[in-house]
Each structure stands twice: as structure tokens, then as C-alpha cells.
Amino acid sequence: MKIMDFLSKKAILPDLRMSKKEDVIKELVDSLVSAGDIEKSNRVRLIEALMERESLGSTAIGQGIAIPHAKSDCVSKLVGAFGLSKKGVDFDSLDGEPVYIFFLLVAPHDSAGSHLKALARISRLFRDKYFRDSLRGCEDDKGITRIISQEDEKF
């Protein structure tokens, strides 16, 4: 599975405006709504599901990365949004560090397998510091798409 298979190209935010956990999640969900991946009528329900998942334990997995995720019947296949924060967001990460890179995932209820594969794929790419740093240096969505696609092709 490649990241570009599920990342919505129109839901890539190079400069997140918000700085609080719930606000960043809303900002990312809104990008999926604008991209047409999520119906506007499902917006609130999806945000609630994502926040509920956060309450079970932060999805900030270290190295400045968070992968907020939820299962929801408002999608028929796995879809993801991407965002960069220049100043960093306190996301209650286990290592106590702020989060700069966000990858939000929404999966249908029956997708345990593809969800796990997506998490694995994201982790495989993002554990490379050079890759993370190049992404953080991106100024626009095209640059982000280019760097992720290049990395995606490597393995």
C-alpha cells in the first residue's frame, strides 16, 4: 500500500493555522470536507469520533508526528488528510514533544486490515529523519505531494 493511494491530494495543508488539539483535528477534517471526501453533514460526528479516540490515548507517536484516526461509516474507503504546523502543537504525545506533522486517517468500520497497513506505511516512511525534515521545509501542497510521492516510490 502506498501513501498516495489514500492521501487526498486536495486535503494537504502546508501551514496549519490552529494550535490546539481539537482545533487542528477540525481543521484537518474541514480539508476533507472541502476536498469532497467527507459529506458536510458528517463533519461533527467525525470530529467527535476522532476526539473520542484521542481520549483513549494520544495518537502522537513521537518524533513530532501524530496520526489522529477513527473508524466511521461516513467513508466507504480509507482516506487521509495531511497537515504541517510551523510552530508545533501540544498533542499530549508520549515523549512530551510538540507535533509538527499530522496525518489524519478515516477508515470504514470493516477495514481493520487496510487501516493497519496504512499505519505501517506511514510509520515506515516517517521514521526517516531526513524525510521528515524535508517535509517540514515544504511551503506548499505541491512540494509535499512531490516529496511523499518520491519516498513512496522507493520501497
Binding site: I61, G62, I65, A112, L119, A120, R121, S123, R127
Partner: peptide
């Protein structure tokens, strides 16, 4: 000791 490491394995 790394979450990203464990996740990367994609162990179903």
C-alpha cells in the same frame, strides 16, 4: 521502545 517502530511492522 519506539511506537513508530512497532507500527511499521504492521503485525496483523
Amino acid at each position: 521502545k519506539s511506537i513508530m517502530g512497532i507500527l511499521m511492522l504492521g503485525a496483523e
